[in-house]
Write a protein that binds this DNA or RNA. Structure first.
Lengths: 342, 342
DNA sequence: CTGAAAGCGCTTACAG
DNA sequence: CTGAAAGCGCTTACAG
């Protein structure tokens, strides 16, 4: 119930240690030109008084030591693995990550990025942003930026980290063909807008490439789901009840594949006998094991660590862009395995 | 490739509108004592120049318009429903929510809260914090605070919002008894430390109360799982393979209940015939429908909206604490339904 | 109603 | 090596 204690500032420390505020500031930043004796005196006072630098004030002149993390879907179970990697990569750097949720619409995402810049954040990592490349580029000119899961191989204003989504799709299709599927459909998600080069678009491109040899027109073989689970479920049911229903399904995410399991079970279709299913992300390594969902493994942790490192080096001054691409790996499980020779 | 554009500040706007910086500041904050004419002139300039206030600078004197959200588990599918509510409750208030992840250890959580205070955040909402009440109280004296999922009915330094966890546990046990279970076990989670009054502890208390009439010593009927899924799975297997395995299982969360489904399926136990299972949170309303998991419904959205409102009113000056408690509701599904008369 | 000035807690040239 | 002073972009009494 006592009023807020008066904050310990650089000035309090300076008085206690009997030095100038400039000296304290230098010790704080490990700046050059402070004697060992002074450093010790100041550090002792900081310790004693429990001094903590005031980030807002630091931000006015120098850095805030804050990194903004932008994401759009708290419900996507793949994303936490990315964040684990980011946290790990930032550990010990002195930069505090803070997460903003864009909620999947472009205006909200723009507002959020502006909010982060206004708060003087030192760098931004965006995970699967909805914004098109040009918009991101504008922001990237204001603040060091690294993008995860958004392909921009020729961009030089910011860095990117990705898994090769085209490759993943090609591998999945090849596997389904090998398993004897003749009517393969991709369960994709509606793109927020045409120009966006996100991972889903890339997977569609890879799918179309790999489907080249089949009779069907590739574009007929792609079905676009929605952002909300209920509408997507309806769509899946319609697809599975069609007379010419697919015998092989390539799902853009394990989340959607799970919905396919549910719908198939309720309709009475067997997996993999009636429909072979391949998911993406390898999310449910353990949890859904009885399902045995085949999936493309692409550890988010790797993305996160790489993104954090790229961002830190950019904050430290690097200006040429870097674009990392890792390769996903198909993990075959029961949901797509029809032959026994694997 | 042009250098960062010079930032538009309050001063730029003042010059453009030909007024003082003080005037601009007043317009910005909708402060009293500005003529209509001046307000319009200033707003026109702000619009024209694309002015956005600099939060770090504002924070040095007034507010940063930033709310810190603290949570510990990005993987818990219940939490996003809480955040949805918080976002909704904050909408239009001008306060920007930013999320920090404590990663389940007390030192990290403390560091995170300090980081938020150092960044001059105007208020904090903590979801299921690991810290004991006294520590939270210390922070709450520095910054308006609202706690979700942490019972502190007598606390007056901060507000709380909860569902009645004791009640939920009692209802679950009564239901299992009604279904003919004689050997009921609670699958709980290890408490981070003794003094913490979190939702799990409350559920254990409710469980023990409701078990009072049974022969078994209640404390024997509580099994403590771990934070990592793998260890918990081992524990569940051991439990299900015991000669005197339970015929009724009350799980502290739906996540754990899902693991029970997996283990039971692999061991060859039928649900609900061999074991009736009740979960908590009603997380998988749709996704796991074939499982038909009975669960306690406690919409996180309600918690979030209420917390946001309490925090805003506290920021506006309220000083007496408020403690909201909602009631959970048991949703009975196939996993616990042995008789047909419901 | 309007504005000049001090100050929030830091950092950064710049003297000494 | 050390420190006085200006300044970052705002807000807040306080005069006019």
């Amino acid at each position: 119930m006592t009023g807020r204690a008066k904050r310990v500032t650089i000035r309090t420390v300076a008085e206690d240690a009997d030095v100038s505020v400039a000296a304290v500031s230098k010790v704080l930043r490990n700046s050059y030109g402070v004697s060992e004796r002074m450093r010790e005196k100041v550090q002792a006072s900081m310790q004693k008084l429990g001094y903590r630098p005031h980030s807002a004030a630091r931000g006015l002149r120098g850095k805030t030591f804050t990194i903004g993390l932008l994401q759009n879907d708290l419900r996507n179970p793949y994303l936490p693995t990315i964040f684990d990697g980011i946290f790990k990569g930032l550990e010990g750097s002195g930069f505090q990550p803070l997460l903003g949720v864009g909620q999947s619409t472009e205006p909200l995402e723009t507002a959020l990025i502006n909010a982060m810049i206004d708060r003087q954040m030192d760098g931004l990592i965006m995970v699967a942003p909805r914004l098109p490349g040009e918009k991101i580029e504008q922001f990237a000119r204001e603040v060091p930026t690294c993008i995860i899961a958004h392909h921009h191989p020729d961009e030089d204003a910011f860095d990117t980290v990705n898994f090769d989504d085209k490759l993943g799709a090609r591998v999945a299709v090849r596997h389904l063909i090998e398993q004897g599927c003749h009517n393969i459909v991709m369960l994709s998600q509606a793109l927020p807008e045409p120009g966006v080069s996100n991972v889903i678009q890339q997977r569609e491109l890879g799918f179309i490439e790999a489907m080249g040899g089949l009779n069907k027109r590739p574009s007929d073989a792609i079905v676009h789901g929605f952002f909300d689970a209920a509408s997507t479920e309806t769509l899946i049911r319609e697809l599975l009840l069609k007379p010419d229903r697919p015998d092989g399904l390539f799902c853009w995410s394990d989340m959607v594949a799970t919905q396919v399991f549910v719908a198939a079970a309720e309709i009475g279709l067997r997996i993999p006998e009636d429909i072979a299913v391949v998911g993406y992300d390898n999310t449910y390594d353990d949890q859904l094991r009885p399902f045995g969902l085949s999936s493309l493994n692409q550890p988010g942790y790797k993305l996160g660590v790489a993104a954090a490192q790229l961002l830190l080096s950019r904050i430290e001054g690097r200006s040429e862009a870097e674009h990392k691409v890792f390769s996903p790996e198909l993990i075959v499980r029961g949901s797509s395995l029809r032959s026994d020779d694997t």
